[in-house]
Structures are given as structure tokens and as C-alpha cells.
Amino acid sequence: MKALIFLETNNGKIKKSSFELVKWCADNNITTQSVILGDFNDDIKTQCETYGVENLTVFKGDTSYSPLNWAKSLSEEISSSSANLVLGSSSVLATDLFSRASIISTGNYVNDCTELNLEGDKLTPRKPLYAGKCSCAVEFMNENTKFVLMRPNQLPSGEEKSVSTNISEKELSNSEASVKATGVSESTSDKADLTEANIIVSGGRGLKEAANFKLVEDLANVLGATTGASRAITDDGWVPHSMQVGQTGKTVAPSLYIACGISGAIQHLAGMSGSKVIVAINNDPDAPIFKKSTYGIVGDLFEVMPKLTEKFKSVL
């Protein structure tokens, strides 16, 4: 087996979930080639050398995402590296790129996997279905290239391993002109993206009004956490839709998820029940969120949250 690892960059850095894949391949003695599209700089090079990326191809060119050109270049790299497994971390960009490239390279594509089981040469990922109400094994039935996207934070974290990265440079395809990027608006947050975050503090309708979302932000700030929300409050416009966690929002899997004034509707649970530790703060002892929590506090969030923020300030 030979794996091609897609190292996804964001704001001039490789996402940390990419290194989970580098480590997984190293742990399983799989020969790898890594690939970066568009964005490249010295920081990225240093990251590669720090986290054990041995062979890297960089496709230089327009840094803005172009679905067709990127898919074409990725497919070109699959052929030239003779990889039969293409690995990436599930994200908006990687999902788009991998599924399109899977048609060009005649491959089998599966996303959002939570396990990657290897027995001899047989790879069997598992993936959640029906918003996590069950899961299944993914069985490959032919030898076509496998395109597998892992949900971030499921495999062990990447490890520091000093190497000198062997880099070859290529030109990013620009032959496809039917999709023209015309601009990107500023990102609304400088925090880690929800899907990558290690700690998330989320608020729901229990906050009573938009201004009280500050309680969530204060708690998140002491923890270096990213903020999330239930649909009840994104629908009401208290916070942007991009912060919504759940079936019709983001799927997240942080080490710690703190749900404040969120009832725990099935559609919300769908997006966060993969979190390692879940804390719920709710004044209703029967709120469904408590059934999925590791630790529960029955209480008034207006009392609990400021005290919790103070306590964290004093111990962290």
C-alpha cells in the first residue's frame, strides 16, 4: 500500500489534523507521499520538518480554491506517486476536492470516518450514519484508489519527529476556466475552526438573549476555546450560522464540549456526541443533554457560568 496524504492549509499553516494521518501511516509502516496545493511558505515547511513529513509535493499557483484545477492536480499526483490510498481530514474543502478527484481517478470515496482499521493490507474504515445513531464498516470491493477522509480528533494526534523533508515543486493546474474565484470575505473568527477545536463552549436558548452570549465568550476565552451554538440561537440571528453545531451545522469532536443552556435535541447531539468529555449546564434536571454528558450541573447558567469562568482563571 502507498498513501498520498493531503496536507490541508488554512491561514498559512497546515491544519493539525493532517498530522494525525502522517502519524497513522508511520505507525502502520505505510510508505507515504504528501501533497500541498496552493499555499506554501517557510512556516509550512518547518511544520513538515517537525512532524515527520518525509516526501512532499507542492503544487504552486493560485492560492484561492478552484475545485476543478485542484482536483486535476491531486489526480495527477495520485498517478505520478502510484498511491492507492489517498488520505485527508474531513473538511469543507477536502470533501469537495476528494469527491471530485475520485471521478477523475476512478476511485472509491468515503468521508467523515471515525475509525481506520488495517488488517494486513485490508483497510476497513468505519463511519457514523444517521447523525451518529449507528455506524457501519466500509468495505472496499475492488482495487481502485481509495479516497478516505477521517473526521478530525479521532486518530491519535500527530507527533513531533524531526526529518528533512524532501520537497518537489509542481505547477498547479490552471487549465479549467469554467469556475473563476472572484473573492473571499474575511473570516469572522481568529479562533480554531469548530471542527478542529480542542475545546468548545456552546450556548443555546437558555441564554435568554443575544447579549448574554458574552457569558459563553468569557468562558471560552479563559479556556482558549472556540464558541459554538444551538440552532435555536443561530436561527434567531444571535450568532452566525457558521457557529451552529449539529445535524444541519458542524460536526465536532473536541476533547471537551461545554453545553450551556442547550436542551440536547437529537439534531444537536448529532453534531457533538463524538466529543470525548461533555459538560452540561442546565436548570432542568430532565434535559436530554444530561443523558449524553460526562458531567452535569443542574443550575442557573447565569450563576454557574461566571463562577466557572473565575475558577478557571484562578487555576489555569
Partner: peptide, 9 residues
Amino acid sequence: IEGGAKESF
């Protein structure tokens, strides 16, 4: 796209 930004094409 991620981080709540909008990309136009």
C-alpha cells in the same frame, strides 16, 4: 467555507 468566511465564484 470554514471560519464563517464566504468565497465567491
